[in-house]
Amino acid sequence: MDFFKKSLDPRIALVAIAFFDIFLFLILGAWTVGGGETMMTGLAAELIIGDKINEIPFWQIVFPPDFGYWKIYISLGMLFGAFVGAKLSNEFFWRFPGSLSEWVMITIGGLMMGIGIRLAFVCNVSTFFGLTPQLNLGGYLSMTGIIAGAWVGSHIYKKILKF
């Protein structure tokens, strides 16, 4: 099938995703990733530290661990869909960061993404595909932050990779 041979124009992919997102908005709520990731963090922490998680107020007040939280399954679905797409187009293979500086950048970047999402209550997906199209004030505040952050990040990236 051609779909698995050639890469798809991202404009077509994103417009299709936007229509599905409108359906999701009508049924459950707009596409989001950060909330599901936070719940997964809580569930993983519960698995590792057991009842001690109850001593951390955040996991009692803001995100009590719950396997039934639908947003988790959006992320798991993305993992599954991407795996199927990669397998069927022969694009699945294990690849590793090439240098120590890449590992360090990914580690710091990952930590910053996690901290940033929780501080803001939103991630990039909710910003662009949920809040802003709902004309939510939070969307505009988040966009200001992410564009400024991406600008600073891009210049750090440029300096580190020296191009």
């Binding site: 992320s75 990914i106 910053m112 803001a120 991630c123 505040l141 988040s142 200001t144 932050g145 992410i146």
Partner: peptide
């Protein structure tokens, strides 16, 4: 908190080379 949070996130995503979607994909 949205401005500060997404500012931190924005730097992080560029350093990590992926956002919340592309990390899963």
């Amino acid at each position: 908190n949205q401005v500060i949070g997404l500012f931190i996130f924005g730097i992080g995503m560029v350093l990590a080379g992926a956002c919340t979607v592309s990390t899963w994909v």
